[in-house]
């Protein structure tokens, strides 16, 4: 086997076990893994920003395509650094105001379109098929299609009542909002179960890799590193920590 592949496998197993060691407690291995992860991610961001944003989005269009309009956003970006100079720090605040205003301006119509209009469009459905009878379709067979519309209307109305802040939740409002919170919790329960299943599949995938890397082909990487990790923890807990306690007592 190629030595680089082997090195990659041992590194992957080692770092996986280091991160999982957090389940025991915060320790030097987890800290090592955490800082390696952070360092790599920041290094990657810097490279990504230089090549994707600075070179591809600014330098090339400005110098090669002579797209001079880009000078404006470039200056605005540079103005953010004025916050390091007390006398002209106010300039950065203008740019931040622009960023927040731009975010709100972009977000509000999108939220109204997606969060209100699209939802209403889907909900404004017939409550009952008057022509065919309430629970019966055109063939005279029993159907629950219409009751779904009713459940949706009751659910949305009661949930909206729960999120009313101008009215004290007393009497009828309390009862309706209670129904609303039941709807919310049922939805959350379903979402929780669904996501947990997804996380379990991620864990199974990682365990599958660890099992595969414990084979002779990879020189028992998972088993060797796991035993080493456990031994280090035992030595630390039994020998070093005990020694420290004894020293303190003396």
């Amino acid at each position: 086997m190629d030595n680089t592949v082997l090195l990659g496998v041992w590194l992957a197993v080692g770092l996986t076990l280091f991160m999982y060691s957090f389940l025991y407690k915060d320790n030097v291995f987890f800290r090592f893994g955490e800082h390696v992860y952070l360092g790599i991610s920041i290094g990657y961001i810097i490279v990504r920003v230089i090549f994707n944003n600075f070179i591809n989005d600014l330098y090339k269009p400005l110098v090669e395509d002579r797209d001079y309009i880009l000078i404006i956003p470039a200056l605005m970006g540079l103005a953010l650094y004025t916050r390091f100079f007390t006398r002209i720090a106010w300039v950065s605040r203008v740019i931040f105001a622009f960023i927040v205003g731009f975010g709100a301006g972009l977000g509000i119509p999108r939220t109204i379109a997606g969060g209100i209009f699209k939802q209403l469009e889907g909900v404004l459905m017939p409550l009952a098929a008057i022509k065919d009878g309430f629970f019966f379709n055109a063939d005279g067979n029993f159907t629950l299609v219409n009751i779904n519309s009713l459940i949706i209307i009751v659910g949305i109305t009661s949930v909206l009542v729960y999120f009313f802040f101008s009215v004290e939740h007393k009497g009828v409002v309390k009862s309706v909002s209670r129904v609303g919170i039941y709807f919310v919790m049922i939805a959350f329960g379903a979402s929780f179960g669904y996501t947990v299943m997804g996380r379990m599949s991620l864990l199974i995938g990682r365990c599958y890799d660890l099992i595969e890397f414990s084979s002779p082909k990879y020189y028992y990487a998972s088993i060797v590193l796991l035993i080493m990790l456990i031994l280090v923890f035992i030595i630390y807990e039994v020998v070093i920590k005990k020694g420290e306690v004894l020293k303190t007592n003396e």
Binding site: I116, L120, V123, L124, M125, P126, L127, A128, I130, S149, I153, I156, T157, L160, V161, F163, F164
Partner: peptide, 18 residues
Amino acid sequence: KGLIILILILGSLASTAG
């Protein structure tokens, strides 16, 4: 929100009536 509840109820009834 109150307005939306009203639209929801009226819209569903209107939709039921075609």
